[in-house]
Nucleic acid binder design. Structure first.
Length: 755
DNA sequence: AGCACGCCGACT
DNA sequence: GTCGGCGTGCTC
């Protein structure tokens, strides 16, 4: 090629081009300007995806704003602007109110715009997949298939094919293509049958369901007065924004209240969005809704494939899906005709995203409901102190359900003071005696211990050497089953040493108690009982949790040992004894929210057990038996505890009475982290006129994690406004800091926990 | 976050 | 003499 290729001259006149501000998926709190010819076949609008050249690569961004060239207040020179490669959508991906929500999140969380889009949109769309609904289809048996099966034309060996045909006869309306997996049908056999024309596939839309004359299927559940009045109260607000807290004791029938309200919403041709905690989202939740309503119900959760999520998302967007059930991120499902948002177990920590862009789905849901002009219903037996504080501020209306709906027997609580008690593998004599009694009376037993693995430490009996993770500065947890050590902070693992690496003796002893060891000693103490363990290690397999739950309900398990994951969602009617093996950690924790979490755990755990004819018992083992939280929960209930805990937060000037933000920085080099946060503090100090107090910088509770040192700088205030002002004024300068480029950092609003 | 440019150590 | 280490800087 000959040299001297001229750079293409763009005719930069205001008639020909407009400027499009694009949010690009990079961790920068700014948008980038691009040019677009005015005669481009698609009119650019906020919320459309565009392909753009960015640096030396190309990226997919989202249009944030469109400006005409003549009255733009650009601070960059036009020559620097590049043209958009192409617009990927012919209409905005999300509704007006979601765009407003996006802008609110940008202001409130001070997060990079690209990151917010990444949580708002399904990954398939972020990768540039077309926003097209693929038609769903159903499989049905043909007449030929029916005859062939009856006349025994099917080879004996074709077991799977026989299964398919039988299932299709059982389901005369056919089986949806995306459900065939649930029937354990291999696709190859299905294709084989289709080739013979024994089965056929028909393409349909979910709208067929929705236009059915009877949208809600009858229910024979009798409601009590409290439930009726709760439904009445909320249904008077279906046409406007109101936030409700449905504070209902366990088994007070919250779900039935949800269902009746959803029924009204569907009758108004509107959609219901239901958020559940991570674990609660089992196939049964979906089935319960499907059994009740003859409308299209879709789910949205991390267990689904990208394509499945996109399909659910698109059905929510076009209004086909009437009920959307999902975990945290489902909050951002676009709704054509929004009717209500329900957050079940609103206190649950899974509603807070703890990776990347950190937000609280509960808080954002209230803002979204406000923008959509619909009610939002937060339900819990142990509400977050944040929500209860909002009740007293008048931001949320509280509805109480105090009666047990089904005639459940009340629980008996007992605190076992461990001080000076002889212990047998973490179990007091008192507890062992109780377990024995309950087993004799044919009751099932649930034991909670929030520590998986065999023992939290493996150490040398002779020289005291203990095995610790170099990357995190914490002890490895010993896992007996496959004889390995695992760091529960960074996940790294290694083979367990049998000889002390320091003194070469062979006296390595596990110290402390985890679920694995507890299960072992239970098996030893109760050799005749069937014992099972449920934690992250035993439920790796996808259906494992489901299998455990079914076998407990079927009475095939006598004693169930598990971590907190067992506390969520499942009710076991035959369980009569629930024990919290070690409440000490929660009561002595450095986290000021620990008592709140512990109180919620006790409340939730208690909800797992009992029914009318089998009174339940809850035992709590602790060295801190005099702790006021325990007394309040046991004698006066969660509400009473919450009241005094809220008062303590006022005294201590802690959230929700005050508000927090946090700068966190991490780097393999501790000095870099310290320099950066010192610089940040200096910049923040320039605005000492604002009523924001700075605390720190200080090391995070676990300073070292995965080879990186982590420090934090807290901002505390009683005025959210001033906090936001301060961040608005300073973040620009903080981003430009030289020390900022040497660390990974972020600012977090309303931080919880340490990680 | 990517990605490239750029200036110092161990290899064919 | 080169390959490549990751520090620094930029992205419309």
């Amino acid at each position: 090629m000959v040299a001297g290729i001229e750079a293409p001259q763009l005719p930069l006149s205001s008639e020909n081009y407009c400027i499009v501000k694009v949010a690009v998926p990079v961790p920068l709190r700014r948008v980038f300007d691009y040019l677009l010819p005015e005669n481009y076949p698609i009119t650019p609008q906020p919320g459309m995806r565009v392909q753009i050249p960015f640096g030396r690569t190309t990226k997919i961004g989202i249009i944030d704003e469109v400006e005409s060239l003549d009255h733009s207040d650009l601070d960059t020179q036009l020559e620097k602007l590049k043209p958009i490669t192409q617009i990927l959508d012919d209409s905005p991906l999300i509704t007006e109110s979601l765009i407003s929500l996006y802008r609110w999140m940008g202001q409130y969380y001070h997060a990079p715009f690209g990151e917010i889009w990444q949580t708002l949109l399904p990954t398939a769309l972020l990768k540039g997949k077309p926003a097209k609904l693929s038609r769903s289809s159903r499989w049905t048996i043909t007449d030929i298939g029916r005859e062939s099966l009856e006349s025994g034309k099917l080879a004996k060996s074709a077991v799977k094919q026989k299964l398919i045909l039988e299932q299709l006869i059982k389901n005369p309306t056919g089986i949806a293509h995306d459900k065939i997996k649930d029937f354990d049908i291999p696709y190859s056999s299905l294709k084989n049958l289709a080739g013979k024309k024994w089965v056929s596939r028909d393409y349909i839309t979910d709208n067929d369901k929705n236009i059915a004359s009877q949208v809600n299927l009858p229910s024979d559940i009798q409601l009590n007065d409290e439930q009726l009045s709760a439904i009445e109260t909320v249904s008077q607000h279906l046409d406007r924004y109101t936030a409700f807290l449905l504070f209902g004791v366990t088994a007070s029938g919250k779900t039935e209240v949800y269902l009746r309200l959803i029924q009204q919403v569907i009758e108004q041709q509107r959609q219901a969005l239901v958020l559940v905690p991570e674990i609660g989202l089992t196939p049964q939740t979906l089935r319960r809704f499907e059994q009740r309503f003859n409308v299209s119900v879709v789910t949205l959760h991390s267990g689904m494939s990208e394509q499945q999520r996109l399909q659910s998302w698109l059905k929510a967007k076009n209004g086909e899906a009437k009920i959307i059930i999902g975990t945290r991120s489902a909050l951002f499902a676009p709704l054509k005709n929004p009717g209500i948002i329900i957050i079940d177990e609103e206190h649950d920590l899974s509603f807070r995203q703890q990776q990347g862009f950190r937000y609280s789905a509960r808080d954002v849901a209230m803002v979204r409901a406000n923008l959509e002009k619909i009610p939002v219903l937060l339900g819990s037996a142990s509400p977050s102190l944040e929500s209860l504080s909002n009740v007293s501020k008048g931001k949320i209306k509280q509805i109480e359900l105090t009666q047990k709906a089904q005639n459940t027997a009340s629980l008996k609580y007992r605190v076992i003071d461990l001080k000076n008690q002889p212990m047998n593998q973490g179990l007091s004599a008192d507890l062992i005696k109780s377990i024995k009694q309950h087993l004799q009376q044919k009751g099932q037993v649930l034991l909670f211990l929030n520590r998986r693995g065999y023992a939290p430490v493996l150490l040398c009996h002779q020289c005291g050497w203990s095995s610790s993770c170099q990357r995190c500065d914490t002890h490895y947890t010993y896992h007996h089953q496959n004889d390995y050590l695992q760091c529960h902070h960074c996940g790294s693992s290694r083979k367990a040493p049998h000889q002390c690496p320091q003194c070469q003796c062979d006296q390595m002893v596990p110290v402390g108690l985890g679920t694995e060891r507890l299960t072992e000693s239970i098996k030893h103490l109760f050799p005749d009982a069937k014992t099972a363990r449920i934690d992250r290690d035993t439920t790796r397999r996808k259906s494992a949790m489901q299998d455990f739950v079914s076998s407990v309900k079927a009475g095939e398990i006598d004693i169930l040992v598990g971590t907190q994951m067992l506390a969520k969602g499942h009710h076991f009617p035959d369980v009569t004894l629930v024990a919290l093996i070690d409440m000490d950690g929660a009561l002595y924790s450095a986290d000021f929210r620990a008592p709140e979490y512990a109180a919620q755990l006790i409340t939730q755990v208690s909800g797992r057990a009992g029914r009318a004819d089998k009174p339940g018992e809850v035992l709590i083992q602790t060295h801190h038996a005099e702790h006021s939280m325990l007394h309040q929960i046991i004698h006066s209930g969660y509400g009473e505890f919450a009241n005094s805990a809220l008062n303590e937060r006022v005294e201590a000037e802690l959230p929700p009475h005050t508000f927090l933000a946090m700068f966190q920085a991490e780097s393999p080099q501790m000095a870099h982290v310290k320099y950066f946060l010192a610089d940040v503090k200096q910049i923040l100090d320039r605005y000492s006129n604002l009523k924001v107090e700075l605390l720190g910088p200080a090391p995070a509770v676990y300073v070292k994690k995965a080879g990186k040192f982590r420090y934090q700088l807290f901002l505390q205030t009683s005025s959210r406004n001033q906090l936001h002002q301060l961040l608005e004024l300073t973040l620009g300068d903080i981003e430009k800091l030289k020390s900022a480029s040497r660390v990974r950092w972020r600012v977090e609003i309303d931080p919880v926990g340490d990680s």
